[in-house]
Design a binder for these strands. Structure first.
Lengths: 236, 236
DNA sequence: CGGGACGTTGACGGTCGTCAAAATTAGTGG
DNA sequence: CCACTAATTTTGACGACCGTCAACGTCCCG
């Protein structure tokens, strides 16, 4: 193991409001700090975990941008999500003590490894932590319902519009601009997530530009008309 | 409330291996019995819960066949899953104390309501229950990853073949035939789940019949060639 | 027996995938 | 810093797949 690891505390982490339950006592917070095993730097392209890896940790993203993807037997690939600071990855591994997807860094970043056995131990004593873990898993289930709606019933323009609005909203919640965003993934990865081919992503971007809804320079996207995007997602 | 409710015990339930962790002591099993609030009969078409309902219970299906579906603002509908005996529904409600989908019975059945607050209480003391709850949620996340792969990358024939194999396998695990199944849902509901229109479902069934892979009489499906279905899902 | 829900089939068109080529950018090593 | 190669993106032409619309058939239940 040549990963750089640093001992760190949630209490110092500016992502705490995103990862952690609110209203903890100092004592509870200290105890949660104790289960954060290590902070690990991840380089672009590096995998946090891989399909088939033994499951031991959940990972909280401190910085950076990640994707999770599954590969079917015959080599089909599906991006199941893009994750950013404050989000938790690895929940797929619990059921069979083994990860069923890959988590890959799309840019350099840092993650906190949290041994799941310790999370279970501590959540028996800290009710807020227990409920928080349940909420995180439930949130992921609800998020995936939304993706199923997108994949099952939306057309290409609707999918891309929904995708851009979702990204912008999540970045905004982290203090970034609501209208300026930098895509950390390729057109192919967007396409894989949205169930479309990269050419369709490219064409749809071009159409949005023609319609004056966004400006696109490479991976820099400037949303000029949020309402128009919203109307595309939810045609009245 | 005019729902018929019956006090019931997990220890008597023949679905126990499916709902419950294994290796519990008698004492632990008794305590889990204690949180099963009521057994409720559900008629075909009746809703177990509805989008917007306050979340208080998870529900274990004892008998019957159910669907869960979400509706978007503009009225789009997406079936997010079909559930049968031994499966748990309601996990979507945890994150916001409110259900975000509908659960509807596709045939008469019985469910066990399990107050989630009591599940949390007891799982602080019974480790096997705690871990079981985590596994159930993780299993649902992994299942949805599979649906995303299906919706994102498969063609109509592949989707329907995967759907039939999945149903047959789950029914087989419950002691039913591996090759004979009765669909409890309409073509439209299958289509909604698979991201296809009902006409496409009907046409694809017809094609499978022409190819000698299945026999279809209404909702009765006889799988004649499982390998052929498998080859459709996973073309080599 | 009649009405309504459900299912099947056909014709046609639109959306998006496929294939190909060119343009632009990023990455690498000299 | 520059040259060169690989990776990514854009755009076009064409066709396949599936959606839409319509008509008809079947089953179920009162």
């Amino acid at each position: 193991m040549n990963h750089e690891t640093i001992k760190i505390a949630c209490s110092d982490c500016n992502m705490r409001e995103l990862c952690m339950p609110v209203g903890l006592t100092d004592d509870e917070l200290d105890r949660i700090d104790g289960i954060i095993g290590s902070r690990r730097k991840i380089k672009r392209g590096e995998r946090v975990f891989h399909n088939g890896d033994r499951f031991t940790n959940l990972y909280a993203i401190r910085t950076g941008f990640f994707k999770t993807c599954i590969t079917s037997e015959d080599g089909r690939d599906q991006v199941t999500g893009f994750q950013m600071a404050g989000e938790i990855i690895g929940l797929d591994g619990i059921v069979h003590d083994q990860h069923t997807c890959d988590a890959v860094a799309l840019e350099d970043g840092e993650i906190c490894a949290m041994p799941f056995a310790q999370i279970e131990n501590l959540s028996r004593e800290v009710n807020a932590l227990q409920h928080h873990v349940h909420k995180i898993m439930s949130r992921e289930i609800v998020r995936e319902h939304g993706v199923m709606l997108l994949l099952g019933s939306m057309r290409a323009e609707e999918r891309l519009a929904a995708f851009l609005l979702n990204l912008a909203q999540r970045l905004h919640a982290r203090g970034f601009s609501q209208s300026e965003l930098v895509l950390r993934m390729t057109r192919e990865e967007i396409g894989s997530f949205l169930g479309l081919k990269l050419e369709t992503i490219s064409r749809t971007f071009s159409k949005f530009v023609d319609d004056g809804i966004v400006e696109v320079k490479q991976r820099h996207v400037h949303i000029l008309n949020t309402d128009a995007l919203q109307d595309i997602v939810n045609p009245k």
